[in-house]
């Protein structure tokens, strides 16, 4: 699916809704739900983005960060400048793959914007269970999206994939739903009975696919109830361990999406207190599964028994 970044899309903007934000974007974002209303929390525009940030407090290979300012630089794709949690400027490289420009916009750039707005972005996929949210965190490749997709096949609705935005402004951690898509690899789609060939790739050059959710998506704000941190082990068994105290807090800090950005953006203290607030309301469990073979149905049964308890 290639949607060109044509002249029209550069001048006419549309309003979208995701992560609890009204987003007014000049770049078409077909992966997000359209929003209504007139007032936008965030604007996304094309513009000139500097090569470097003056006085960057922390920099990584592809980013520079300063309180209120964040620069993402991707060679052959685009530069993104994220400011004060309310504006993203995109400076695309000529002839860059448009899907790639959107992919990193809705990834690291949005991650930085959420950090700037003091919304806690957990590196997690999440589903709706009754009137709450159950989230699956863990390293890339551990099966977060696959697990969310499998629950969706069983009738659950997905609320987030990869970035699970948690707001603790009211004291209770609330999840605002993200994009109505799941990003899945070839083998995971096969496991789910989906034909990868019939789905768009996230980018032409990467063998990862986008599964649109339609009715399998819940666009809502719901309290976060449970967080499962997934990991794979070399033994053929499952383990479920309820975390408490420092282990629980560490799990929340460690599973924060692009935690490194905070070193430059500032707000580490606030982030820590948000994690502590989430920890007070949410049950956090470490889930270990065997490396060889996901045995997804058994894992789902184990988790369901736990979160329905």
């Amino acid at each position: 699916m290639i949607i060109p970044l044509n002249a029209q899309s550069a001048t006419v903007s549309k309003l979208y809704s995701a992560w609890g934000l009204a987003i007014d974007s000049s770049i078409e974002l077909p992966l997000l739900q359209l929003g209504d209303g007139v007032a936008a929390d965030v604007t996304i525009r094309f513009g000139t983005v500097p090569e470097t940030l003056d006085n960057a407090r922390h920099q990584g290979v592809c980013f520079q960060a300063f309180p209120g300012r964040f620069l993402l630089k991707l060679e052959n794709i685009a530069r993104y400048l994220v400011s004060d949690g309310c504006e993203i400027l995109i400076d695309p490289v000529p002839d860059a793959e448009s899907d790639a420009i959107r992919l990193f916009l809705l990834g690291s750039a949005i991650g930085a914007l959420l950090h700037q707005r003091s919304i806690l972005p957990l590196h997690a996929s999440a589903i709706r269970v009754n009137e709450g949210v159950v989230a699956f965190a863990g390293n890339s490749g551990v099966g977060k999206s696959t697990l969310a997709a499998s629950f969706m096949k069983n009738g659950c609705q997905v609320v987030a994939d990869d970035i699970c935005a948690v707001s603790v402004a009211s004291g209770v951690p609330l999840v605002c739903s993200g994009s109505p898509n799941l990003k899945l690899w070839h083998d995971a789609l096969h496991q789910l009975g989906e034909d990868p060939q019939s789905l768009p790739r996230v980018r032409d050059s990467v063998e990862k696919y986008r599964l649109p959710l339609a009715h399998g998506f819940a666009e809502e704000v719901l309290p976060l109830r449970k967080l499962y941190v997934l990991r794979s082990i070399n033994q053929d068994r499952f383990e479920l361990e309820h975390l408490t105290g420092v282990d629980k807090l560490n799990a929340l800090v460690k599973n924060t999406y692009r935690f490194n950005f905070l070193k430059g953006l500032g707000g580490k203290k606030e982030h820590f207190s948000h994690c502590a607030a989430v920890g007070r309301h949410v049950d956090v469990c470490r889930v270990s599964r065997g490396k060889n073979g996901f045995r997804i149905e058994e894992l789902m049964a184990l988790l369901e028994e736990d979160f329905n308890r």
Binding site: F63, N76, F104, S205, N260
Partner: peptide, 20 residues
């Protein structure tokens, strides 16, 4: 380790090509 590269680069390598 994928996590080291993701953290230090600030992006998801799972969204990138091997050459990138």
């Amino acid at each position: 380790a994928r996590g080291i590269i993701d953290d230090e680069a600030g992006i998801e390598t799972s969204d990138m090509t091997m050459a990138e």
